[in-house]
Design a binder for these strands. Structure first.
Lengths: 209, 209
DNA sequence: TATTGATTTAACCATTTGGTCAAATCAAAA
DNA sequence: TTTTGATTTGACCAAATGGTTAAATCAATA
């Protein structure tokens, strides 16, 4: 029976257990290629294992994808409802949301387009995740109607605008970088780094009478 | 030898020539499934023809896709540069751009996500189209630097914001409709119809000192 | 009517892909 | 050392897919 030290050594040798390696590899490949574009063989290669082993751990491509998608999706929106409910001014809420949202997107630039695609391909996945998350549609409706009274504008329009402005430059990066920035990566990165403050000021100015 | 009348009858019978039927079918399928997701057999079925006939008219899937993509892409952006150059106030430009953009998107709601995907999958296609369109990067740069002087804000940030706000609700429709509108199509359509004016007022208010 | 060139089809082909299975390997317990 | 149960592998399979080809059909012309 191995003691803690040998366990640790084994752990270091393998670096990470097989399931972890699969999850990590699958995440990378699925993010780049999407559900239908990803190949089980490619994921197996990335994980440094046999393709049959993939099916040993996750019986099917659908199952594997389901696990990955839920993980990515929840990670991407876990902070949002908290920020929305926090007891702070609307300006602070906007600032908080934009900051955290831009941060998570810039760290995972493939995620937005990935989510948009998979949601369009099969929107039943979404239902289950929302159910699990305990996100109540009645609760949401209360938040929004409350906000509307205080703001005088439709908070849903505001939220969608915020999301669109944050997401779009990352999802459309190859297009924008080519057309607007003559394919210069540096200038585009500069553009992105200035974007956070631009979005904030735009949203906040819109709310000031 | 058929006279004009019989020609016309034949034309009505076939409704549209084979190449046209293929183009029409390919456009529909490619828009829904993307280049890699679309199946040649599916396109053939949609066009009511044999799969081999597809390869008779367009030698390969790549060639067929190329034709469709260029068509969709140029149709989608053909008005933009004209509006941008027109000799009108910036407010009117914004109004014009948002109107025409929202119009073309709502008539082709699959297009935005389709373009985003294909651009990310293979951004070399873009280069050729831009070359053909005669869109000069120097010219663009002149327009933007001129605008910047007059506006005091970065017109590229403004343009990207506009595009993002217009595109996002259509690309993310299944997500938003489910989470924000409790899967009610009617309410979401209402939301969309109000969106045009919201975007305009937001952009214009941002520019007023 | 016979010929010719374009159009259309059915039958194939090679490759890719998700998935299966029996056998081999390995680690821990008896 | 033997046994046992989990893990891993190579070989294989059936279906799907992009593409090819030879033959059939059709419309116009000589």
């Amino acid at each position: 029976m191995p003691n803690d030290l040998t366990k640790q050594l084994i752990f270091m040798q393998k670096d990470i257990n097989t399931e972890g390696k699969i999850l990590q590899a699958a995440r990378k490949i699925f993010l780049q290629k999407g559900m239908t574009g990803a190949r089980m063989q490619e994921i197996a290669n990335e994980a440094g294992i046999n393709k049959a082993l993939l099916h040993y751990y996750f019986r099917s491509k659908d199952k594997l994808f389901g696990a990955i998608f839920e993980d990515i999706f929840t990670q991407f929106f876990k902070n949002a409802s908290g920020d929305l409910l926090a007891d702070i001014s609307i300006e602070e809420k906007i600032s908080l949301l934009v900051d955290s949202y831009i941060k998570v997107i810039s760290e995972n630039p493939y995620v937005p387009l990935f989510i948009l695609n998979e949601i369009n391909r099969d929107h039943t996945i979404l239902k289950n995740i929302i159910l699990k998350s305990g996100l109540n549609s009645q609760l949401l409706e209360n938040i929004f109607s409350e906000l509307k009274k205080n703001l005088g504008v439709d908070p849903k329009q505001l939220l969608v605008s915020m999301l669109g402005m944050c997401v779009f430059p990352y999802a459309a990066r190859p297009l924008l970088q080519s057309v607007l920035f003559d394919d210069d990566r540096k200038t585009f990165d500069q553009f992105l780094s200035e974007r956070k403050d631009f979005i904030k000021s735009m949203l906040i100015k819109f709310l000031t009478k």
